Amino acid sequence: MTPKPWLSADGGSGEKRHAPATLRNRDAIAAVLADWLPAAGTVLEIASGSGEHAVHFAAAFPALTWQPSDPDPDALASIVAWSGEAAAANILLPLQLDAATPDWPVARAAAILCINMVHISPWEATLGLFAGAARLLPPGAPLILYGPYVEADVPTAESNRTFDASLRARNPAWGLRDTAVVAAAAEQAGFGLAARCAMPANNLMLLFRRR
């Protein structure tokens, strides 16, 4: 089971969940997305989690339609609660979507965003993400990943080493991925690595474009 890094948003039993990391990273992510997202169309967010990112980005990019998704029923309920409270016309109802499976309940998108999934899921989920993105995205469209990674030519921060060890202790199929390995898998699926952006707290944003 994937860990759920969130809390009850109101301290009670409501469906809204709060992921503390969202408040710390959402503005930095949005600043990069402003350069990488298309001007219009639907952004499919894979592994939306609590839904807080979806609400924030939908407000930041009103010309885009936001399609959240997640395989976890608790996450889907939280997304509905947050988006319902925001009452934003450009947030669609969330889809139950497991990136590792070939049956995605969506036919097309102008962009795909995936935040903090690659390291907290089996490698098959990342391979499925690229395969699904290849089916949905037109040539030139962006697939954007955010999270912690390791790189052969960049020293790994001690905090990331500790995090990686804790993930692998919980599930040997999890762990921080090497960007070169991720890029190779993307290439096999028809994507080229177009940009790499260092982010706060030893995270990265990776931009892949459909060939």
Rank of each mutant, 00 (worst) to 15 (best):
M1K: 02
P3N: 06
P5M: 10
P5D: 00
S8P: 13
G12I: 00
S13E: 14
S13W: 08
A21F: 09
L23E: 14
R26T: 02
D27H: 11
D27W: 03
A28F: 10
A28M: 06
A31Q: 15
L33S: 05
A34I: 00
W36R: 14
P38L: 10
V43H: 08
V43C: 05
E45S: 13
S48K: 12
E52H: 06
A54I: 00
A54H: 12
A54W: 13
H56T: 06
A59C: 08
A63N: 15
L64H: 11
Q67R: 13
P68I: 03
D70A: 04
P71I: 07
P71C: 09
D72W: 10
P73Q: 08
P73H: 05
L76V: 09
A77M: 11
V80T: 13
A81L: 09
A81D: 13
A81Q: 10
S83F: 09
G84H: 04
G84K: 06
A86I: 00
A86N: 02
A87K: 14
I91H: 10
L92Q: 15
Q96Y: 01
A99V: 04
D103V: 01
D103F: 05
V106K: 03
A111S: 03
I115T: 05
I115G: 08
N116L: 04
N116Q: 08
N116M: 05
N116E: 05
I120M: 11
S121F: 05
A125H: 07
A125W: 06
A131P: 03
G132C: 03
A134Y: 01
L137V: 00
P138W: 05
G140P: 11
P142E: 02
P142M: 01
L143R: 01
I144R: 05
I144C: 07
I144M: 12
L145P: 01
L145A: 02
Y146V: 03
Y149H: 11
V150Q: 15
A152W: 05
A152V: 02
V154P: 02
V154G: 05
T162A: 15
S166L: 12
L167Y: 06
R168C: 07
R170D: 14
R177M: 10
D178P: 07
V181C: 10
A183W: 04
G190A: 02
G192V: 01
L193S: 04
A198K: 15
A198E: 14
A201D: 12
A201F: 09
N203S: 12
R209M: 02
R210Q: 11
